[in-house]
Design a protein around this nucleic acid. Structure first.
Lengths: 118, 118
DNA sequence: CCAATCGTCAACCGAATGGTTGAATATGCT
DNA sequence: AGCATATTCAACCATTCGGTTGACGATTGG
């Protein structure tokens, strides 16, 4: 895999990884905490995180025995530019995005009862 | 593969398929003509086209014995919306896109009527 | 020191990918 | 009819992917 577009799009093609990215939108997280909501072994999540890091979509910093995962949204820019070239979509607003998140997890993503307890 | 995001991103993760999409930006094309610039069997390209069609990124219409491939940029909208949610990138212009194409194929990207002899 | 916690590594597995070749199916031309 | 063109199908192959389990190296805390 050479082209960064390859790795970024491949990373985004997996629903678990997209879900992880969405989780990291809210806050940096430790690997174990990232893994918690998933029905998957820790090693499995660790692999997904490695793939996301390989694509530059997250960075991981080890403090003590805990490794913190941080979203790096800038890595999406190149891919976004590439895509926009096709559609010339009108500027996207966050509402549409939140509808999307809601559709994908059916999880309360903000509008009603903003996330409680952080 | 359930989520349309899965299929769209997976389709975009392959450089051959992205190149095909870029070619189709300029014009609809027959399968054989799509295959011509690639060092790959026709059947190989046919498979790639099937994947793109499966993701909704192109449609194929058979007229006579020729199957025409047409770009469907609207299929990118959902993926684009998803991505924009992370970065809130400034609106993207076509210049940036053309720089990208140039970087990826080093091919004349439009300014000088790329299609000769149609 | 000892035990628990955090995370990765290594080996393994089944399924999917990306590609090939050769035969098969349509369609068109003369 | 008969041949060439356009495209897919089917079988096969090597590689990668997504996942598991079990052992392992760090780090922390009693």
């Amino acid at each position: 895999m050479n082209d960064p577009l390859d790795t970024v799009f491949a990373a985004l093609a997996d629903p678990t990884r997209r879900a992880i990215l969405s989780m990291l939108l809210e806050d940096d997280m430790a690997v174990t905490d990232v893994a918690e909501p998933f029905q998957m072994s820790l090693a499995g999540i660790s692999k997904h995180l490695a793939i996301l890091a390989g694509a530059g979509l997250i960075t991981q910093e080890k403090r003590g025995r805990v490794k913190w995962c941080k979203l790096e949204p800038d890595a999406l820019r190149a891919a976004s530019v590439w895509m926009q070239g096709f559609g010339q979509f009108e500027p996207v607003n966050l509402e549409a995005f939140e509808r999307f998140l809601a559709a994908e997890f059916g999880d309360g993503t903000g509008t009603e009862t903003a996330r409680q307890g952080d």
